[in-house]
Structure formats: C-alpha cells, structure tokens
C-alpha cells in the first residue's frame, strides 16, 4: 500500500513536469524510506520504538541557482510551503529563463527575519496556512506532529513547531547543495535526522522559539541531500 501510494505520488509529480522552467522536486524521506503523501505512516527509530508522522509542513524560501559559486538566478518573492497532505507542493516550479545550467542550489529552510517582521503577507505566507504563531509574532519554519510509544503524553503525541527569527533563537537555516541539473533537481530531505539523539520521552513538545528549537533546526538541516 505504501509503495503504491509512493508510486502515485512520484508519477503525479513527473507527469506535470513538462512545463517551462527548472523544477525542484523535494522528496521527504525517513532514513531510506519515502514518506508518502497524506502522512500516517510509521517508522522504526530503534529496535523497539516507532514514530508515526501525521503532520509535516515546512517552508523552503529564498531559492537561488548557482554555477561556479556564482548566483546565476534568484527567485523573487521566493516562499514555498511544502505540505505532506498536498503532494503537488513538493514540486517547486521556477520561472527560470531558457538556456541556463546550474551546479549548485541554495535555499533556506524556514523564513528569514526580515520577512518575519513584515506584517501580514499573502500566498503561502498567509496566516491562514497554519504556520504563523498567533500569540507571539513569527512563522513556524518547520512543523512535525505525530506519535511515538516513547512519548508519555496524551495519545503519545509529539509536536515540534520550529521557528524563531530573533537572536539568539533564530532558527531558519541556509542550505547549499551540489546538484546535477536535469532541467531541475531532486532533493531528499531526511526527517529522521530530527530524532537522532533525541530523547522523545523528555522532549516531545516545542511550540515557541527557544534554544531547543535552534538545536533541532541545526540537526534537521543536515537532512537535505541531492542524491538518494
């Protein structure tokens, strides 16, 4: 069933891939497994413990294409909300001019500080998207919710809402990847990184900017890679 869903997900993304411009295709993975659209799938994090992913949503912003360490194209108004319940959101279409080739891709996981203090914004940044803190201004960069037998919480639930734009709790992170440009690039994002060395029993809820959110963001950002 999982495999089938994964296949549908991938073919969906490839079918609509004929339009102009470079495409970035993000694959959310857990260790070596694809996380299929919809969520609700369970993964082992040790011989005895599991994690079920229910919500996975994050921002990719400030996309830049580089060649020979120089920026050759920069997306304007570059904010993309990727949401596991909306498979199409994992395909980011760029309005690049024809004839360019890039060797490196740069982007930010999350939303930069300037954007965070710019008032009410639209599109993927609209506060109705469920990625804006209401009682204390600021975007959630990365949201992961689910369950684990390790969490002695109600319904064994965990919630990680990582964000924060002010030092020392600034949590957005830049990523640079070497890529091979095949009219775009494929990027893998391994969510399992978040759980490395994490004691889910003790730490299972982050809902505001804090030191822990910064540390987890640092770990998580290493989960991006351009090869399988």
């Amino acid at each position: 069933m999982n495999l089938l869903r994964t296949l549908i997900f991938l073919s969906l993304l490839n079918v609509i891939g004929f339009a102009q411009g470079k495409k970035l295709l993000f694959y959310p993975i857990f260790n070596d497994q694809m996380i299929p659209p919809g969520g609700g799938t369970t993964y082992w994090i040790s011989k005895t413990d599991t994690v079920t992913i229910e919500t996975l949503r994050f921002y990719i912003s400030n996309v830049e294409l580089l060649s020979k360490n120089k920026v050759i194209w920069k997306e304007t108004n570059s904010y993309h909300l990727l949401d596991i319940t909306k498979p199409m959101s994992f395909l980011v279409k760029l309005k690049t001019p024809p004839g360019i080739t890039f060797t490196q891709l740069k982007f930010t996981l999350g939303i930069d500080s300037v954007t965070n203090v710019s008032g009410a914004l639209g599109g993927d940044l609209d506060p109705t998207k469920g990625m804006y803190w209401t009682w204390q201004s600021g975007y959630v960069n990365f949201k992961l919710e689910g369950k684990s037998n390790l969490c002695k919480t109600r319904n064994n639930a965990f919630q990680f809402h990582l964000g924060g734009y002010q030092s020392p709790f600034k949590a957005c992170r830049e990523v640079i990847l070497d890529v091979i440009d095949k009219e775009g690039a494929e990027i893998y994002f391994d969510i399992a990184r978040l759980f490395w060395g994490l004691d889910l029993n003790k730490q299972n809820e982050i809902m505001s900017p804090c030191k822990e959110a910064v540390e987890l963001s640092d770990k998580l950002v290493k989960g991006f890679r351009s090869t399988e």
Binding site: G119, A120, T128, T134, W135, S137, G138
Partner: peptide, 27 residues
C-alpha cells in the same frame, strides 16, 4: 509579543479566552 500592527488581530482572534476562533475559519 506582537511585532507588527498587521498581525496584532491574530492574537485575540485565536486566544481561547478572548475570541477562541481561527483566522482560517474567520475568512
């Protein structure tokens, strides 16, 4: 806690002891 007048209203709208609503639903 609020950094811009635009986003001020989100706080009372979502506060469970104030208006207890969601901006998605208001819209």
């Amino acid at each position: 806690a609020v950094n811009h007048i635009d986003v001020q209203a989100l706080a009372p709208i979502s506060n469970p002891v104030e208006m207890d609503e969601k901006i998605e639903h208001v819209v």
